[in-house]
């Protein structure tokens, strides 16, 4: 007896929400970034569940793309963070507010 589709979707939703909360409340840029990755993974879980229950492989193939994009995004994002750290000497988000009015 496999768990129903609903269970998988709700699990994915829960992981997504936790990741989003992390983005909201953490002050360290790197940890925020990690929570972003968590959200992406939650999305991939949902995709795979759907593709399994619909019997096609489209969802799985799409996961490949998500992984690729995530990897590229992480590379570039971390490069930006490193460059920012060089200038500002900090990665705490509440000190990175030079776009303030």
């Amino acid at each position: 007896m496999t768990p129903s589709l609903e269970a998988y979707v709700m699990l994915s939703a829960a992981l997504f929400v936790i990741g989003f909360l992390g983005v909201l409340v953490r002050k360290n840029t790197l940890v925020i970034y990690m929570c972003l990755e968590l959200m992406l993974v939650a999305a991939t879980l949902a995709l795979v569940a759907f593709s399994r229950f619909n019997g096609t492989e489209d969802g799985d193939v799409f996961v490949f793309f998500i992984l690729t994009v995530a990897a590229a995004e992480v590379a570039v994002g971390l490069a930006i963070i490193v460059a920012l750290f060089r200038v500002r000497q900090t990665v705490q988000v509440d000190q990175l507010d030079s776009l303030k009015h």
Binding site: L24, V25, L99, K100
Partner: peptide, 17 residues
Amino acid sequence: VRALHTGRINHYVYWFL
């Protein structure tokens, strides 16, 4: 409206939510 521009990402994500 100016006061809304805090420059902090957290706040912007709240607006997004």
